[in-house]
Design a protein around this nucleic acid. Structure first.
Lengths: 210, 210
DNA sequence: GCATTCCGCTACGCGTCGTAGCGTAACACC
DNA sequence: GGTGTTACGCTACGACGCGTAGCGGAATGC
């Protein structure tokens, strides 16, 4: 659990936490992940590179996993939805951008390792759901709204409940396909694949043969 | 690497490997994974439960990851494609069966942990690609053939090259969506979700609003 | 018999996580 | 400026896991 960020009101008395240490630790974590991957990154090494004591890490994060989630989350926030004017190219572009992000070792190995630990740790699960899932759904919401405004998609017939489930479904399909191809099938994602995927998503299975 | 199974010709001389030990080790690995998850399962514990020495494990598998891949692979082989007579229900059923499989802790945490390690270990990557990806694609191939025979899908226009890429795409979309929703979004997969997913897959994005 | 390979056992080196306890530094409050 | 409180760096440590080495003995093929 991140103590710094989950505590809304910082204690008033005593020496305050060093913001430089926060940044230095997160930066060191990211750069170490890029070079070494999840397994070979140790808390001791992060502390050394950040120029702080290892105990300072454990004063802020309860475990290596939770530190890594926070360090990786800012990488995922780099994802943006380009307003290309067409739903088709919007999807293609975001798929390519997401694939590009997953090529970076810091995102790749860290994401999988953290997800793995989350299968048995509820605290981590909640954190992932908030940071990696909830925060990225905005892309789907935004893309849908634009497409509906342009008349490319019909407006939502049901209430917001129905719309929310549609967003969830689309998110899992797009993110799932990209993650699965990148990290499990380990095949490259280029523009040609993105186009074929978008064809499938827009036209459905029977329309993909041409 | 699995030495037993990758060696096609066993050495003729000397004491042969005990098949009982093989089975006992794999069984112990699976049951330990169910109870404890990836992190808390140790090679020492597996050896103890299997009634063999820890060194015997290392004579067969080079690392914990590779042992776990083999132990989990048989679980994935349980997946079958029910011949329901309709592409729609074929997809729904296989989605539900796959989701059910991913509910089991042995598959869930072990799969993710192994994938995580595979991001930095080429040997593991090849193994996963063979066992978890290549072997399961048969379901897509079979389902497509049946649907084409029934006229639900058009026949392949391009050569086998094109058909193979179509299978890869569909596999990543289906498996990706199920894995993503199960393990990253951590939302339940019930028949209603499977139906909405199948709608999307068959009809495409514009057709999902009704 | 003999060579070969496997097995169980004990012990060990190595690295990592995460914690304890100390003296000291940086703040808030009066 | 003094005082209490909290963070920090440092050192050391316990616990535990992986993976290996080396032994005597057991099971096979020749």
């Amino acid at each position: 659990m991140v103590r710094t960020m989950t505590a809304p009101s910082r204690p008033r008395r005593g020496r305050p936490r060093s913001p430089e240490a926060d940044r230095a630790i997160l930066d060191a974590t990211r750069s170490a992940l890029v070079e070494l991957g999840w397994r070979k990154v140790t808390m001791g090494l992060i502390a050394e590179r950040a120029g702080v004591a290892k105990t300072t890490l454990y004063r802020r994060w309860a475990s290596k996993s939770e530190l890594v989630v926070d360090a990786v989350s800012v990488v995922f926030d780099e994802l943006h939805l380009p307003d290309s004017g067409s739903l088709r190219t919007d999807i293609e572009d975001v798929v390519l951008a997401f694939a590009e992000l997953l090529r970076r070792p810091e995102a790749k190995s860290a994401l999988m390792a953290v997800v793995a630990e989350a299968t048995t740790e509820p605290v981590l699960r909640a954190k992932i759901k908030e940071i990696l899932v909830g925060r990225q759904k905005r892309l789907v919401v935004l893309g849908r709204q634009r497409a509906q405004a342009r008349g490319e998609l019909p407006p939502d017939p049901g209430g917001p409940e129905q719309a929310s489930r549609a967003v969830d479904l689309i998110f899992d399909v797009i993110a799932g396909a990209v993650v699965h191809r990148s990290l499990i099938s380990t095949e490259p994602i280029d523009r040609e694949w993105a186009q074929r995927f978008t064809n499938l998503l827009l036209g459905g299975l029977p329309a993909t043969s041409e």
